[in-house]
Design a protein around this nucleic acid. Structure first.
Lengths: 200, 200
DNA sequence: TGCTGTTTTGCAGACATTGCAATATTACAC
DNA sequence: GTGTAATATTGCAATGTCTGCAAAACAGCA
């Protein structure tokens, strides 16, 4: 969904051309600037123009790369269900929910500044809502994927709901630098355990 | 949180004065107009100004009553955990999650146009994200309430996550005019059942 | 009727976001 | 190298949401 057309040199194992390299560079510059400024001043107090200035791009370019301020900060993939992820999902031996944890967890395996983001989120709770909002937009993709292994649409929805609930928890639980997928699985187990105690 | 100062005549059993009546009237007019117009034209195609014109108020007044377009449409209470709801919650005999379903479900017992809203949501999926977003803002209130009965903060978070997940499902399940609380409980049970099948 | 507190409104302005057209830059063929 | 097509960056104008502020309209009450 990136507005900037994908360079064909991007896909194969070929070394990316100058063009592609510059694009990654720009994208990264914007993201870095957003991360830095929002960290210092908070999300509301940081304007897109300030980020652009720091990243040395025009505000128009900013919106060529990201659809919103929050998107620039979080950098969620527009299409989390890559063909490879799908392969792994379909081939996974465990249960549906289990496999989903891996796919959903995969969105943040990029790992470099995920920790910074985590801290940002706990320092600025106003960001939780936009972040979850963006996750929600991916929901339908996850449901579609889940449906490929579920025995019914209902099941697919339930499984995704479960994992999204776990995601909601991991967003709130402070600390923990374990990979997201692992945390998700852990939380799902806790949710399972919850049924044996509070409910009746 | 309404910007419009609360009239002291609003609380007790006294008949509200003209002032209070007008306020309710205005609020309702705005909500109705939003409901109607957004239903016809869709959320993006409907501007605040159009709603104001239909409700016959200035746009400034609109924002005195509601913090956003979505808020005017959904009319979620700013404080869903009323003293009475809290009483009932603390006194409820069932499990924590169970009791939470009632509280969370309570936010929409106003019932008149909840059905219209439901249809709106399925007709315009773009609304799901804002709606969930607004629910999220209430999350901390629910967690705080849950913590009063939970044996740990963790438990409170898990319980709320479960109910919010159920809420996410009920938003998506078409049809059904049963009260929200009942649907929530139902979905929670389904989630419970899910553990005995897909997981391992 | 006149005083007081509340609500409504208009206005100006900040900020996010989009469409469009001009400009600059890269890739590639000759 | 030069030229051309493709693509990226930018500027500009416009729309729409939302806020602060001060003036005007209005209800409650003496």
């Amino acid at each position: 969904m990136s507005t900037v057309a994908d360079d064909r040199l991007a896909e194969p194992g070929l070394e990316p051309g100058l063009r592609e390299r510059k694009k990654q560079q720009t994208r990264s510059a914007i993201h870095e600037a957003a991360l830095q400024l929002i960290d210092e001043r908070g999300p509301e107090a940081t304007t897109v123009d300030q980020i652009c200035q720091a990243a040395d791009v025009s505000s128009r370019t900013f919106f060529n790369y990201f659809p919103s301020k929050a998107a620039a900060l979080l950098q969620l993939p527009e299409t989390p269900v890559t063909p490879e992820a799908r392969e792994r999902f379909l081939a996974a031996s465990g249960g549906l929910v289990w496999a989903l944890c891996d796919v959903v967890g995969g969105i943040s395996e990029i790992g470099p500044d995920r920790i910074r983001l985590k801290k940002l989120l706990s320092r600025h709770p106003e960001l939780v809502s936009p972040a979850s909002s963006m996750m929600l937009e991916l929901r339908t993709q996850f449901v579609a994927l889940a449906a490929e292994r579920a025995s019914s649409q209902e099941q697919a929805e339930l499984a995704v709901a479960l994992v999204m609930a776990a995601f909601g928890c991991t967003i709130h639980d402070e600390g923990r630098d374990a990979p997201l997928a692992a945390r998700l699985r852990n939380t799902v187990e806790q949710l399972h355990g919850a049924f044996d105690e509070q409910l009746v």
